[in-house]
Amino acid sequence: MVEASGIPTVVVSTGRDLSAQVRPPRTVFVNFPMGNPFGRPFNTAQQRAILLDALRALETVEQGGAMIDLPYEWGENFAMKLGSGYQAKSA
């Protein structure tokens, strides 16, 4: 909606399949846990790099719906958190 109104947008996503369904105009995918799209706390270099990648996608993407897979590795396996919100719904 924002893009259609004339303002370029970029989504920083940790849910590759979710973004692939919605197809925002531009997505940068970071394979990190959902609470860490810009990485680890106080790792300013990592946060800055990911933000810069998102901003550069504003300049480089030429096809609406593009998804860019960023190369960062979280360094350990992580699982989807079915948080207390989901538990509450089942109560």
């Binding site: 860490n36 706390p41 990911i50 207390s84």
Partner: peptide
């Protein structure tokens, strides 16, 4: 309650730089 924000609680820049 739908994602783990323990890191972002310490440093908001993890989700909102």
């Amino acid at each position: 309650d739908y994602y783990n924000h323990a890191d972002a609680d310490r440093d908001i820049n993890c989700i909102f730089p």
